[in-house]
Design a protein around this nucleic acid. Sequence first.
DNA 1: ACCTGAACACCGTTCAAGT
DNA 2: ACCTGAACACCGTTCAAGT
Lengths: 234, 234
Amino acid sequence: MATQVEPRPRDRNPLTKERVLQAAVELADRGGLEVLTMRNLARELGAEAMSLYYHVANKEAVLDGVLDVVMGEINEAVSKVDGPAAGEDWKTLMRARILAAREVLLGHRWAPRVIETRTSISPATMRYFDEVLGVLRSGGFSYDLAHHAMHALGSRALGFTQELFEPENSHEGDEDIAGAMAEMADHFPHLTGMMIEVAHDDPDSTLGWCDDQFEFEFGLDLILAGLDGLRKTG
Amino acid sequence: MATQVEPRPRDRNPLTKERVLQAAVELADRGGLEVLTMRNLARELGAEAMSLYYHVANKEAVLDGVLDVVMGEINEAVSKVDGPAAGEDWKTLMRARILAAREVLLGHRWAPRVIETRTSISPATMRYFDEVLGVLRSGGFSYDLAHHAMHALGSRALGFTQELFEPENSHEGDEDIAGAMAEMADHFPHLTGMMIEVAHDDPDSTLGWCDDQFEFEFGLDLILAGLDGLRKTG
DNA sequence: ACCTGAACACCGTTCAAGT
DNA sequence: ACCTGAACACCGTTCAAGT
């Protein structure tokens, strides 16, 4: 009769808070936020959902935790730009740091939505914004102006913006596209005018034509330039 | 034996899509997004949850619908500023319109979170952004620059920004506040420095001291000024 | 100390059935 | 045409119980 020869891998790899959070990040990366359920997360770890509660208080704690992991990655990424950009002016440094943070967030597309729902700020997030404030201060900002500056940047300071028009490619009724265009031109003359011009300049891209990265940098540079002006005059 | 004398009010007030959506908006206004469930919504209307599905496809359709109601309110509100602000420059007009939109959103605090999750844009939203584009065009913006401008404004064009630090007033361990402050000063020197200065200037408000409306207008004016500069030069 | 089974109170939704 | 009851496949979570 064969007895247990090997302990199951699980036995040598007990659950920890860190393993739970790491698995949660990977699960969200792979399947998005809606597949990140306690039951799925447990299955991922070869355990039962209820076992998770020994290591995390509840699902809110999981969400706090995965965000902390991401913010840790961001802090690590931005720390690497601090050295090379040491002698630079505040604007160049801030820009490089924010784009580095954005790079990390692009690897965790679900993270902004978690940020939005957080009710408290983790130490890692505090550290990030403390450093943002530090960069502003080193550029000569008063606390008061720096405070407004951080609000003005908002989520852009972390490398993301609220996208209002996610393409998601509907294309429901491709056939009556001419009629739809005509009706659209009636109701939304400016938007159609813009799209016509875009289609004319670059016939390949009628929709899904927005370059997110370009637009992010455009808006970021606009705000940074504006803040730099206020710094000098006020 | 008493027979039915009066028809129940429900009989004279059958469900319609409009009634469902109106009730959904009121429910969310009262209890927030998490109480807006199909079952609660049905109870609100004196019906069963399953009855709703005769009038709306599913919950996504309800969310699309409530946002459409809000966007309708916004379009109505901004249309009232168009008249008085007729002769104004684009920046003044845009500012007034956006602040009017914000006013509406402040009455539906849950709306931004619904906006973020929408996958398609309703006609009412299209109309709003068509008019935003119209204002930019009337100010002399090229389609190209106007397009970047709309991205730069982002959700600010609708009157809201992603708040990163909702106060929510934790105040967990009020007793050891001095020790906590000291430790915080170690880890987050700039943030504590800022808070100390704020507390010094205005001793009443240690936390919850951010004036959302002021910060919104500050950021908005910064962007509008920046865009106006680009409009003139390029 | 660490994990689990059964159970509870919710979700959104389908489908056949009522009037 | 309009509404509903019963049922399904999910949630997060508690609690007593296992090792």
